[in-house]
Amino acid sequence: MGKNLVTAQIRGESRALCLGAVMVVCSAITYYILGTTVLPLYQKSVWTKVSNCHLIEIDIREHEKLEGKKVPQYPCLWVNVSAIGKSAILYHTEETKEKNHQCSYIPENLEDYQEARRDVETIRVRFKERQNFPCYSDPDETEKSVLYRRLYTPQMLLKWLFWPTFMLTGGIFIIMMVKLNQSLSMLAAQR
């Protein structure tokens, strides 16, 4: 009976050890992904200063209005604002500028032109209602554009770091408890 109890205990410890190891590996992978994708994007973002933007011009530009340049076949919302004492182009997020620097806002559904047009019109009306709004600018003024919303904020980094840290700590704790239990089991078996 004692041998069966020791065998069952070893199986339980092995399962717990595997669970702890899986948690540690998952958190390490998450940290790697975080470190190679999100952190560089956060560091690359220069729009850190909260400013007050005043709407100067807002226009929905169709592809034919953009001076014959090759542009996507969706309506383009163009927003010109006054921020930090200068005229600047407003972009929805960091990704908007990278996707198409000619558009301040890119609609989500690009397959259906009419739905994209309604989406852009809704955003245009919201901007018309609020002439002044907070935006993010570059404190060094190297960027001539401002952002309506930042994707990569310190709060976002904290959110991304919480669960991997929790899993890493939990996995290490499980492994330590299993090892401690194994040591105590060996001491008890020797007596």
Rank of each mutant, 00 (worst) to 15 (best):
E62Q: 11
E62R: 03
H63S: 03
H63K: 04
E64S: 11
K65Q: 09
L66G: 00
E67K: 00
K70V: 05
V71Y: 00
P72T: 03
P72C: 04
P72S: 06
P72R: 02
Q73T: 05
Y74R: 08
Y74H: 10
P75W: 01
P75K: 03
C76Y: 00
L77G: 00
L77I: 04
W78V: 01
N80H: 15
N80I: 15
V81I: 14
S82W: 07
S82M: 14
I84G: 13
G85Q: 08
K86G: 07
S87W: 02
A88M: 15
I89M: 11
I89L: 08
L90S: 02
L90M: 11
L90N: 00
E95M: 10
T96F: 04
N100D: 15
Y105L: 07
I106Y: 02
P107F: 07
E108D: 12
L110D: 03
E111T: 13
E111W: 04
E111H: 12
D112H: 09
Q114N: 10
Q114F: 08
E115L: 12
E115S: 13
A116M: 08
R117N: 09
R118Q: 11
D119N: 07
V120L: 07
V120P: 00
E121Y: 02
E121H: 03
T122E: 12
I123V: 15
R126E: 15
R126V: 12
F127P: 06
K128N: 09
K128F: 03
E129W: 06
E129I: 09
R130V: 06
R130S: 15
R130M: 07
Q131I: 12
Q131G: 07
C135L: 05
C135D: 05
D138N: 06
D138G: 08
D138C: 07
P139I: 05
P139Y: 01
D140M: 14
E141I: 15
T142K: 15
E143A: 12
E143I: 06
K144V: 13
S145E: 03
Y148T: 08
R149W: 03
R149S: 11
R150Q: 10
R150E: 06
L151E: 11
L151N: 09
L151P: 06
P154A: 14
L157M: 14
L158W: 14
L158N: 13
L158D: 09
K159T: 14
K159Q: 11
K159W: 10
W160G: 02
L161P: 02
L161E: 04
W163K: 08
W163R: 06
W163Q: 08
M167Y: 06
M167C: 07
L168G: 04
T169R: 07
T169V: 15
F173S: 15
I175G: 01
I175M: 08
I175R: 03
M176W: 13
V178D: 03
K179E: 11
L180C: 13
L180E: 11
L180K: 15
N181M: 09
N181S: 15
N181K: 06
Q182P: 02
Q182H: 10
Q182I: 14
S183M: 10
S183N: 11
S183R: 10
S183W: 12
L184T: 08
